[in-house]
Amino acid sequence: MSLGVGGVLSRVAELQEQLGLTPPPAAMPGSTSGDKFASALAKASGPGQGTSTASGPSGGDVVAAARKYLGTPYVFGGTDPKKGLDCSGLVQQVYEDLGVKLPRNSWQQATAGRPVASLGDAKPGDVLAFGSPVHHVAIYIGDNKMIAAPKPGDHVKVESVYEKPATIRRILDDVPAAAVQDMSSLRPAGLRGSVSGSGLAGVPYADLFLKAGAKHGVDPKLLAAVAKVESGYDPKAVSPAGARGMMQLMPGTAKGLGVDNPFDPEQAVDGAAKMLKGLLKEFKSMPLAIAAYNAGGGAVHKYGGIPPFSETQAYVPKVQRALAALGG
């Protein structure tokens, strides 16, 4: 049973009186020591609006943390506020300041927390994600405004929500501080380790996609989409070019990823997750990472985008459609 501040003060006074101590003048007009104690206790208790230690950080805390970075230069791939931030770097940094870990990429952040139905239902601190596939994220501050790191040559600033978000995610939902500390309720939905509710129910080898995704920080749905397009989830598949297994790894690529047997589904999925993690970090774009998985990173660099190979040009949208079908 909670006594409240007044009840606590009253109980303290009773105990002091029973022990023969001088009762604090908390209830007396003009008192000082009692007032100080009440003030300190009230500060410790918080205003009861989701800002107290017991309730963890609130959406207002998120907005306040984001405002600290206003004016920070936009730097593509930037994660250091002293040098510059990109859109997902800003969102990740703001939540990290509050003790909440979010994934690095915008498309991963667009699966964190829980969905919010519409902008009309959004609250300050929610993450707004734009594009399909997601290519931009921002922090909602209310009144149709958001804080974002918009583009090269610009800086972190407040701007209007210029288009309908593809998705809105509530990372903080008045969860207890303990839940924030262990982060389990804030991981991207696809990384929580349970097939049920992950969007992969009924997908072959779903448990392997979840396991490898959690291990390497890659969306399990992306792994499943690649497997579907590469082999139709067939662990014995062999391509005319010699790519092997469910994830269609070439022998040399498999060896470099530490995959001894690409026909072993668990090894293959783990190797593919490791590979995609590196490609996503290198290109900071899901379509380019998917293209590099098919054609190689060198080709993507050479052509400055998706290579003009008919196979790769068709491959990227196939994977994106498979990913969308999984809710990714």
Rank of each mutant, 00 (worst) to 15 (best):
S10Y: 15
R11Y: 09
Q18K: 12
Q18E: 15
M28N: 09
P29W: 15
T32P: 03
G34V: 11
G34M: 07
S39P: 08
A54Y: 02
G60S: 07
A65G: 06
A65M: 11
L70I: 15
G71Y: 13
V75R: 12
T79D: 02
P81W: 11
D86I: 07
S88W: 09
Q93K: 08
E96W: 13
W107F: 12
Q109M: 14
A110R: 09
T111N: 15
G113M: 10
R114H: 11
S118Q: 08
L119Y: 02
K123R: 06
P124H: 08
P124N: 11
G125Q: 07
L128T: 04
A129I: 10
V134L: 09
I139G: 05
I139P: 10
I141G: 03
M146T: 02
I147A: 01
I147Y: 05
A148S: 07
K151P: 10
P152G: 10
H155W: 08
D173I: 07
A189F: 06
L191M: 09
Y205F: 08
D219N: 07
P220G: 00
P220M: 12
L223M: 13
E230M: 13
V238M: 05
G242F: 11
G242W: 13
G245Y: 04
M247N: 01
M247T: 07
G252C: 02
V259F: 02
N261A: 05
F263Y: 12
P265Y: 03
P265W: 12
A268T: 07
L276N: 04
E282I: 13
A291V: 15
A292P: 01
A292F: 11
G298R: 02
P308L: 04
T312Y: 06
Y315T: 02
R321C: 08
A322E: 14
A322Q: 03
A325K: 14
